[in-house]
Each structure stands twice: as structure tokens, then as C-alpha cells.
């Protein structure tokens, strides 16, 4: 039976904590909203719903990052960039080197705290860039340099 094999590399293990922190920030925002509902509204049930949602997000904060870490992978060969992500809705993406237009690294404020970075590989399609998420930022810079070198060496007009 034909199937897609997993890409070779995992994200940096610190990614789990980065994702967890994102969920916790989300939970905190929900908790504040639920609190505000409790204070401002007379009926009790909007606040209770907010509280329940907060509890759900807290559970997700424990489960989701670990599941995501187990599924998320990436790989770069001389011919293509290959990624796999999403723990419920799976997504695999392949972009050939000959069609790569730009290679960038990105780092959000939370990621900087964990020393992580993303590598963004852009092609001419409206489908959006292929993202290699949550690498050690030194490794990300190295990988971006390597990708740029490979794309320069690969002939192709990128469209």
C-alpha cells in the first residue's frame, strides 16, 4: 500500500513549551473574559460557559502540544522541501527547489524567549509559503543559508 512516509526530522523539543505557552495565553484571555461576565452579567450561565471553555483550553494546553510534537516533521533534500503538520487535520506539503522564490527565517516574541525560529519557503503559488516551524534558531539560520544555496544552484524560473 502506497503512503506518504514521515519526513526525517522533528522540530526542536522546546517547541512543546512554546505551543503550551500559546495555549496558556489563550486560556488566560478566556479566563479574564469569563471573570468579566461573572462581574457584569446577572445570569450565571454565560460566566459558567466561559469557565468551562477555559477548562477545555487548559486540557488542550496539556494534550495538543504533545500530540503536535509527535506528528510534526520536516525534511530538506537537494530536490525538495517536505513538511508534515497538524495533529487532527494532517497536512503534508512538498515544494520543489526549482520553484522556490525566497527563503526567510522568522521569529515571534514568544519564540525568541525559547530560542526558536521558523524557516519560510515561498513559491509563486497563491497557496502560501511552506513553513518549517519551531527549529533551534541557529539551526534555522543555517538551514535557510543551505536552502538559498541549493535554490541558486538549481535551474528553474520559479513559476
Amino acid at each position: 500500500m502506497t503512503a506518504l512516509r514521515p519526513p526525517r526530522h522533528r522540530p526542536d523539543p522546546r517547541a512543546v513549551w512554546w505551543w503550551t505557552l500559546q495555549w496558556l495565553v489563550f486560556a488566560a484571555v478566556l479566563a479574564v473574559v469569563a471573570g468579566a461576565l461573572w462581574v457584569l452579567l446577572d445570569p450565571w450561565w454565560p460566566a459558567a460557559a466561559g469557565g468551562a471553555l477555559t477548562a477545555l483550553v487548559l486540557v488542550a494546553a496539556v494534550v495538543a502540544p504533545r500530540a503536535q510534537y509527535r506528528f510534526q516533521r520536516w525534511e530538506v533534500t537537494d530536490q525538495a522541501v517536505y513538511t508534515r503538520k497538524g495533529w487532527l487535520w494532517h497536512t503534508w506539503r512538498v515544494a520543489p527547489m526549482s520553484r522556490v522564490q525566497t527563503v526567510d527565517t522568522e521569529q515571534g516574541p514568544l519564540q525568541r524567549a525559547f530560542g526558536l525560529a521558523n524557516v519560510k519557503v515561498t513559491t509563486a503559488s497563491a497557496q502560501g509559503a511552506v513553513m518549517i516551524e519551531a527549529l533551534d534558531h541557529g539551526l534555522a539560520a543555517e538551514l535557510a543559508d543551505k536552502l538559498t544555496a541549493i535554490t541558486h544552484a538549481t535551474p528553474g524560473d520559479a513559476t
Partner: peptide, 12 residues
């Protein structure tokens, strides 16, 4: 210029 393969839990 590339492929995207997706699978939702229902599709799986």
C-alpha cells in the same frame, strides 16, 4: 509547483 496533501479525521 508543489503539492499539498490534507486528511481530516473523517477522511482518515
Amino acid at each position: 509547483i508543489g503539492w499539498t496533501v490534507t486528511q481530516s479525521p473523517f477522511q482518515r
